[in-house]
């Protein structure tokens, strides 16, 4: 596949960047998410997670079934910070999810 194929739409991360990251030693979706930010945009990895798991599997030889998907945290949909502020979520974690709205 071409290097510049966009895999993560939200954060605009390409195939080449993900392959480089995996070859550089980031072999879990959590690590890739923390460094490249894919999965942290407004879609929370809904579009790209499967593709990233496939790339990790292809590069490391670990079967797809054994590559862990990123951990899911609330909220399940992007929420404006103002809405979050207006009423704290039940577990008292005011920032809730990882969607940053900057």
């Amino acid at each position: 596949m071409k290097e510049d194929v966009v895999i993560c739409r939200c954060e605009d991360i390409t195939y080449g960047e993900i392959v480089d990251a995996v070859r550089g030693g980031l072999t879990t979706t959590e690590e890739i998410k923390r460094i490249l930010r894919c999965g942290m945009g407004p879609c929370q990895g809904r579009t790209c997670s499967r593709l990233i798991v496939r790339i990790i599997s292809q590069e490391t030889g670990v079967p797809v079934a054994e590559v862990r998907f990123p951990v899911v945290r609330p909220p399940s949909r992007p929420v404006e910070i103002g809405v979050m502020a207006a009423g704290g979520p039940p577990d008292g974690n005011p920032s809730g999810g990882e969607y940053d709205a900057d």
Binding site: I81, G82, V83, A85, A86, A101, D102
Partner: peptide, 11 residues
Amino acid sequence: GKGTLAAEAKG
């Protein structure tokens, strides 16, 4: 780009 968000409280 990402746009800047007005953090106005609804509710």
